[in-house]
């Protein structure tokens, strides 16, 4: 069984590799994405960043986060996956020493939702 599954799995991977479109990680659920946007707004992330779909404020001190889901790296150093992005959003300096972005008090759920929202920005 395991062996069969393994074969089927590798077949799928081969098939997927033939697909010219890039493999995108799946989107988080819509509820999480919506809560993430609301949390980013409530915490004032816009004080430093231009945020997709949020009119004000449009801070310039940090990079724009439009299209963040297309980026390969977080802050140019870390792979852009959901757990790492969530950790970075809450406490940037501990992951990227020397970052100008301070640790912002938020709970794990908020960090996860904000990361999910950012990764859903793919245009």
């Amino acid at each position: 069984m395991i062996w069969k599954g393994g074969v089927a799995g590798s077949m799928l991977m081969i098939l997927a590799a033939c697909d010219p479109a890039p493999i995108e990680p799946p989107l988080a659920d819509a509820g999480s994405i919506a809560r993430g946007k609301a949390a980013a707004q409530r915490l004032g992330c816009g004080a430093c960043h231009e945020l997709p779909g949020i009119d004000w404020p449009k801070g310039r001190i940090g990079p724009s986060l439009a299209g963040f889901g297309n980026r390969a790296l977080i802050a140019g150093t870390l792979p852009n996956d959901l757990p790492r992005l969530a950790a970075f959003v809450a406490d940037a300096p501990s992951l990227v020493p020397g970052s100008g972005m301070p640790a912002v008090p938020m709970d794990a759920g908020e960090a996860h939702d904000i990361a999910a929202w950012l990764q859903s920005q793919r245009d």
């Binding site: 992330c45 001190i61 100008g100």
Partner: peptide, 9 residues
């Protein structure tokens, strides 16, 4: 809101 992030910004 007032937090370390908005303060820096």
């Amino acid at each position: 809101p007032n937090n370390p992030g908005t303060m820096a910004g």
